[in-house]
Amino acid sequence: MDNVIETRGVYRHFGEEQARVVALDEVSITIERGEFTAIIGPSGSGKTTLLHIIGGLDNPDRGDVLLSGTNIADMSGNALSDFRRDHIGFIFQAYNLIPVLSAEENIEYIMLLQGRPAVERRERVQQMLSMVGLEGLGSRRPGELSGGQQQRVAVARAMASGPDIILADEPTANLDSRTGIALLDVMRALNEEQNMTFVFSTHDQKIMDRARRLIVLEDGRVVDDQRR
């Protein structure tokens, strides 16, 4: 199997002197294509920081971050934006979508950034909506969708660009239990059917139960790594 994500000795701190906090301390992990992985740990353990560094939203102080073989640790500006656009899909905790665009337009937006032709964009939007079970709701704006439906649109948007991995930061945090499970089932199905790699940062037991691998962080260090 090929490695989609590889971090080598990633170190990141915030603040200086007495306020200095080490968020990640020499974190080295490898995630293979098709894995369904949850990064877990108590608050302040460095989960979100690790997810942001893997996603190119933040740069480590030192160490390497290889995504599909490309080291993004030192990338910045447009090159990093373009890399994220083409290789990484993001799902955040909430307010993922642009509220003034419809569900279809939110999904289309990322493909517009990629410069794909309009006909192709429209076709793929319908595919993505169908994939997450939102046929017929594409013209609705986020405010007209339930929390679970909004997160499904976020999944569809993350998938639309054809990324190598999808990073999800507490995607079920604002959903009730049933809606959260339904969303996770959608993502799990995508993982199994399309071999899409998912990496979660979470406290949610439902995600932990469904994850095939759990990476446990404490005080910025990997203290456990279980495959199931």
């Binding site: 939203l57 993922n96 937006y109 950034l113 990629q114």
Partner: peptide
């Protein structure tokens, strides 16, 4: 502010 963070995260360039 948060929304700009999200759309930048998904690949919108500073120029865009």
């Amino acid at each position: 502010f948060y929304e700009f963070g999200v759309i930048k995260a998904v690949g919108t360039t500073p120029g865009a």
